[in-house]
Design a protein around this nucleic acid. Structure first.
Length: 247
DNA sequence: AACAAACACAACCGCCGCAGG
DNA sequence: GCCTGCGGCGGTTGTGTTTGT
């Protein structure tokens, strides 16, 4: 038997904090600080355990917490740091001023993880949520349609994800399983950089399900596959200026 | 409009490492 | 060296909200 949970003690309250409790905690910490979390609730007159007080203060009440949605830059930083540090949320939070480990963890699990997965073959998988799968998605900035995807049936029989194979190191073409609306696709790609879209094929019985193989070339006509994960993430989430990525 | 499914996020749980006795 | 208490951390859950059917 492990140690009993601290909040199971008689009379200690659990669940969401009330504004009154918040105010008591804030006032106490402003006056006396939080030297001893275990003793704090009793001294402050709160029917909470020390852990609960600490969590509430660190994750919600602290004055230096930045509220609101994560910016694109913050999300990219999280992805980068997660590549380096793994699930060390507190270490990641330390590099994102105003954000808490809990918040970052939540964002990762609810947004980022579902959008970006590296499988055993080092393939980059951009996975769509079930809700996303039911809708057509457009990037507000460039109008690229990112729906109508062809899903990888071998690995994802439930059609949950879009698999992008690792770029070949010596081949002159990069085969992608990207499927998109060909008209939107060609309109948004700068011909100077994205010079060719070829061998497109579509299922005659399903006109919403197109598949393209395409070649990526930069302005010097040099194929450039050697991009890091962030690049591919940006490409498939349409969160960056695509042609500039190839410069 | 009602219900179900999916999402978002605050909060809890349990483990671990460290410090002090 | 061992035990205990505490803070900190990461995983998980609970619940309110949003979106889809």
């Amino acid at each position: 038997m492990g140690r009993a949970p601290c909040c199971e003690k008689m009379g200690l309250k659990k669940g969401p904090w009330t504004p009154e409790e918040d105010q008591i905690l804030i006032s106490y910490i402003h006056k006396y600080g939080h030297g001893n979390w275990r003793a704090l609730p009793k001294l402050a007159g709160l029917l909470r355990c020390g852990k609960s007080c600490r969590l509430r203060w660190i994750n919600y009440l602290r004055p230096d917490i930045k509220r609101g949605n994560f910016t694109k830059e913050e999300e990219e930083t999280i992805i980068e740091l997660h590549q380096m540090l793994g699930n060390r949320w507190s270490a990641i939070a330390a590099r994102l001023p105003g954000r808490t480990d809990n918040e970052i963890k939540n964002v990762w699990h609810t947004h980022l993880k579902k959008r970006l997965i590296i499988n055993n073959n080092d393939d980059v998988i951009v996975q769509k949520s079930k809700r996303q799968r039911n809708h057509e998605s457009y990037d507000d900035d460039n109008n690229i349609k990112i729906d109508d995807t062809k899903y990888d049936n071998d690995n994802n029989s439930n059609n949950d994800s879009l698999v992008v194979s690792s770029p070949p190191q010596s081949s002159s073409s990069y085969n992608s399983f990207i499927s998109t609306d060909d008209q939107n696709f060609s309109e948004t790609m700068d011909d100077q950089f994205w010079t060719e879209v070829f061998s497109s094929e579509s299922d005659e019985n399903d006109h919403n399900n197109h598949e393209f193989d395409f070649t990526l070339t930069n302005s010097n006509n040099n194929v450039d596959y050697d991009q890091d994960m962030e690049f591919w993430f940006n490409v498939f989430t349409r969160s960056a200026d695509l042609p500039e990525l190839l410069l």
